[in-house]
Amino acid sequence: MDYETVSPTDFGASLRGLGLNLLVRDVLGEAAFLTEVFGMSAHRLSADFAIMVYHGQVMQLHADHTYGSHPLLGLVPESPPRGAGASIHLFQSDPDQAAARAGVAGGMILQPPVNKPHGLRECCILCADGYAWIASRPLTLEERKAL
């Protein structure tokens, strides 16, 4: 599917399985953050909407105003953090590289890269909208032995 030319109707009809759609104040800013920190690709990028692709997985960003008549918009807090309680795991992102890029891209490192007992090296980065993005990769054999 060509994400740059697919019609909204065809794109919507193609979606399957679990979907992730984030309401954000600034679609262009959030897309730039996700591209810079996690290497996502942005498609159909506008002030209203973006299709984001991460290792073949599709998610969507929508600007608040595109949900004008949707009841969910009334539940979104006026002041950050908006995404409190949700963590979005990106299992194929090197946490050390993501953490190094986060500050320049406007993110805040909530938890620096650390080896976890569940077999992953992770860091937690908050974007400007307060969503917790967890960059992680599997531990190496040496890192597992050191735990």
Rank of each mutant, 00 (worst) to 15 (best):
Y67P: 00
T140Q: 10
R16A: 05
V76D: 06
A47I: 06
I109F: 11
L75A: 04
L22R: 04
L120G: 00
G74W: 02
G68K: 15
H70S: 04
L22H: 02
L126W: 01
M52A: 08
Q111N: 13
V24H: 12
L18S: 12
H89R: 13
T66Q: 11
R137A: 05
P117D: 13
S136C: 10
T9I: 12
T35A: 09
G56H: 05
H70D: 14
D48V: 05
P8F: 05
S136G: 13
S69K: 09
A47N: 11
L15R: 12
F49V: 00
D94A: 03
H55T: 03
R101N: 07
Y3H: 10
L147S: 01
Y54G: 00
C124I: 14
T140R: 10
G29I: 02
E143S: 05
L15N: 02
E78G: 13
Q92D: 15
I125T: 02
T140K: 09
Q60W: 01
A50E: 07
G85L: 12
G19M: 04
D129K: 06
L72G: 06
Y54M: 11
S7V: 03
T5Q: 15
Q97W: 01
D64F: 15
I51P: 00
W133I: 06
A135V: 11
P8E: 10
Q97H: 07
T140M: 09
N21S: 13
S7Q: 06
G83C: 12
I109V: 15
G17F: 13
D48A: 15
L45E: 06
R137N: 01
L20S: 12
A32H: 03
F11H: 09
Y131W: 09
